[in-house]
C-alpha cells in the first residue's frame, strides 16, 4: 500500500516534468526536465519492481540511470561545442599525476 502511494507520487512528479518539458521555455529547461524525468523513471521502476515483487526491474532501472547520463552529456556537447566529436579537454593525453 505504501509502495503504491510512492508509485503515485512518482507518477505525478513525472507528469509535472512532462509539463515542464513541453512548456520550456528555454531548451535548457527541457533538457533539465528530460534528465530529471529519467531519474524519476529509475525510481519508478525500482518501486514498481518491488510492488509487483519482480526484482529484474532493477537491471532496467540501472541501465536507465546510465543512459540518462550519457544523453545529458551529449546534449551538453550539443550546446557548448556544436559537435559530438570535440574532446572536452584541450588534450586528453594529459593525465592526472600519480601519488
Amino acid at each position: 500500500m505504501l509502495l503504491a502511494a510512492g508509485t503515485a507520487g512518482l507518477l505525478v512528479a513525472m507528469v509535472l516534468m512532462i509539463a515542464r518539458a513541453v512548456m520550456g521555455p528555454s531548451q535548457y529547461d527541457r533538457i533539465l526536465a528530460a534528465n530529471s524525468f529519467g531519474t524519476k523513471t529509475v525510481l519508478l521502476l525500482a518501486v514498481i519492481g518491488y510492488l509487483f515483487g519482480r526484482p529484474h526491474f532493477l537491471d532496467v532501472a540501472l541501465v536507465y540511470a546510465l543512459i540518462n547520463f550519457v544523453v545529458t552529456i551529449a546534449l551538453m556537447k550539443f550546446f557548448r561545442y556544436r559537435s559530438l566529436a570535440q574532446p572536452l579537454t584541450a588534450s586528453a593525453g594529459e593525465r592526472a599525476p600519480h601519488d
Binding site: V70, I73, A74, K77, L84, A85, P87, L88
Partner: peptide
C-alpha cells in the same frame, strides 16, 4: 560513445 563524447573522437 561516452568516451568519444568526453575525450573526443
Amino acid at each position: 560513445i561516452l568516451y568519444g563524447l568526453v575525450f573526443g573522437l
